[in-house]
Amino acid sequence: MFLINCPYCGERDQSEFSAGGEAHIVRPKQPTELSDDQWAEYLFMRKNIKGVQFERWNHSHGCRKWFNMVRDTSNDKIHAIYKMGEKPPIK
C-alpha cells in the first residue's frame, strides 16, 4: 500500500491504479517469424526482480492513462515515474 504520483493527476492512493507488469518488453515486429522459444520469452518469462524493477501502471480509476514506474519491490519505494515513450531516468 503506497501513494503514486500520477504524471497527469498528481499523488493518489495506489488502489486507484492497476499494475500492468514489467515495462519495456518490446512487442515482436515480425510475429510470424518468431520461434516457440521466443514466443515463450515474450509472453510468459518475467524478470520478477526482488529490488529495483521497471513497471507499467495505469491510472484506471482516474485519467486512465498509462505510465512507467521504477519501484523497489523489496520495500515498495518508488524511485521514479515517467511517461510512456520517455527514456527511464534511472539505469
Binding site: 518469462m45 518475467r46 526482480i49 526482488k50
Partner: peptide
Amino acid sequence: GHSSVIAKMVDLKLPLES
C-alpha cells in the same frame, strides 16, 4: 516467492510473478 531470485543465480528466467 523467491524462486525467481534463485533462478537468476543461474541466469534462468521463470514464468513467475511474486
